[in-house]
Amino acid sequence: MAPTGEDGADSPWEDVSDGTLVGRAADGDVAAFETLVRRHAPMMRAFAARMLGSVSAADDVVQDSFLIAWRQLPTLHDPAAVKAWLMKITSRQALSCLRGRPFDRAVPERECAVPPELQPESVVIRNAQLRALAAALEAVSEDQRQCWLLREVAGLSYEQIAEELRIRPSAVRGKLARARASIYARMEGWR
């Protein structure tokens, strides 16, 4: 096999399952862990940026999350569930970051980067949709927004969300139902 390039394009690990990568990384294989980072960092970054409203804060959260993951990798009981585990670490780090912010400071609205290969018309439409979704998310309460982001973006189960936010699963269901109804009503024009 070709040696791994700096961009990871020639990595022999790119087609290997997450479970195998976790096993190798837990044994100290840095290249396997780097592949996990390349594979999951974009989703973690997008999730953290949405929660925090700041790309730079999201980058810090993702970096901290991977540092925690590297140290705790041997404790992961189900290597195939590494994606959910990484998202859980990211959500904890993002929530910790949010808790450390002053309450009177508003979270700034950020535009999401769109790949340059898209046509201008598509970029305008997509940005309008994202602004509408951001406005719809801002209209729901903070606890409903956190539940919605943890479910819809991070893909956590109701039980995982309940554990993360320290509430009952039935409360998660109620908050998600109210958040979804509000977002659905506000996004009516985009369907």
Rank of each mutant, 00 (worst) to 15 (best):
T90E: 04
A80Q: 06
R71Q: 14
V37D: 08
I89P: 02
G28Q: 13
A84R: 04
D10P: 01
A106V: 08
D60A: 05
W70I: 01
A154D: 04
E138M: 07
D78P: 03
R145Q: 13
A106L: 08
L52S: 10
L156K: 06
R105Q: 15
P116V: 02
S157G: 12
L86V: 01
E142D: 14
V124I: 12
L95G: 06
M44Q: 14
L137Q: 14
H77W: 00
R45D: 12
A46Y: 07
D60N: 02
R191C: 01
A113K: 10
I183D: 11
V61N: 05
G189D: 13
A113C: 07
E117Y: 15
G155F: 00
A9F: 12
L67H: 10
I89H: 00
E163T: 14
M44G: 11
L149S: 02
T90P: 04
E14L: 07
T20A: 12
S56V: 13
L21H: 00
V55E: 14
P79E: 05
P74E: 03
I89K: 03
G53V: 05
E34P: 10
S182W: 13
E34F: 00
L130T: 13
C112D: 15
C112I: 11
L156P: 07
R151K: 09
Y158M: 10
A177Q: 14
